[in-house]
Design a protein around this nucleic acid. Structure first.
Lengths: 115, 115
DNA sequence: TGCAATCGTTTCGGTACCGTATCATTACGC
DNA sequence: GCGTAATGATACGGTACCGAAACGATTGCA
């Protein structure tokens, strides 16, 4: 339970967005961000279908996001050997680093919030 | 000063992203979000040039974002009568409501964070 | 062995955004 | 007035994403 007042929440979001926009990091879509954080925060296994249901989007949305973030090495695909129709989404070192750094940005900006 | 631990920060971001993705709200780009929040949180006046400098992006980026969000009625353009070259970006009722509701989403998700 | 169901992917046309360069309008100094 | 500077908008080609539909691959069941 984190007590956050509306103005603080908005200010936090603004500062983090500004940091992301100003930086030369690869800009991720809100959907891509939701997928990435879900893969790294929720327990595996993660499948295309599962993510599509969690985000309430269609499967092609997940496939395309995996294409993009896979090219960025933020996560990786892996065929499920027990049911070769499935694709398991796995974490990568680069992705873990990216997520960790992003979390630090949020924490740092939260620490500087006034009032 | 808000004490937020890395895992809490990431979980918060995930939940808010999920809420936005799942909702049928108009999805805003990270840049658009940075502009919108800056207009509504920072003191006016706001100009295209000023926003471009603050976000470290080019002016067409701001112009296009204003087009998009203007069509959504999230903010409005207004010629500066003292220097008619300038365009002043003003807040709207719809935009204020949108920002307020977004802040509430963040606050609500922060309140439900574990540990 | 067939055949339907499920999985993820691909294709299609359309839309939105990007960066760069250029434009029209307005202001200001000479 | 006239040229220069500054503002924001636009044109252009390119890229990425979107929703809907169709597609191969794999499974499991009759």
């Amino acid at each position: 339970m984190v007590a956050l007042r509306p103005l603080q929440a908005l200010r936090l979001w603004q500062q983090v967005c500004l940091a992301e926009v100003r930086g030369d990091m690869p800009d991720l879509t809100e959907r891509q961000m939701a997928i990435l954080l879900t893969v790294y925060l929720d327990p595996p296994p993660h499948t295309v279908r599962g993510l599509a249901e969690k985000l309430k989007v269609t499967k092609p949305v997940i496939t395309r996001a995996l294409d993009t973030m896979g090219a960025m090495k933020l996560l990786a695909r892996h065929r499920d050997q027990r049911d070769r129709r499935n694709v398991l989404i796995r974490r990568t070192v680069e992705g873990a680093l990216f997520v960790e750094r992003f979390g630090d940005v949020v924490v740092a900006n939260a620490a500087e919030l006034p009032i």
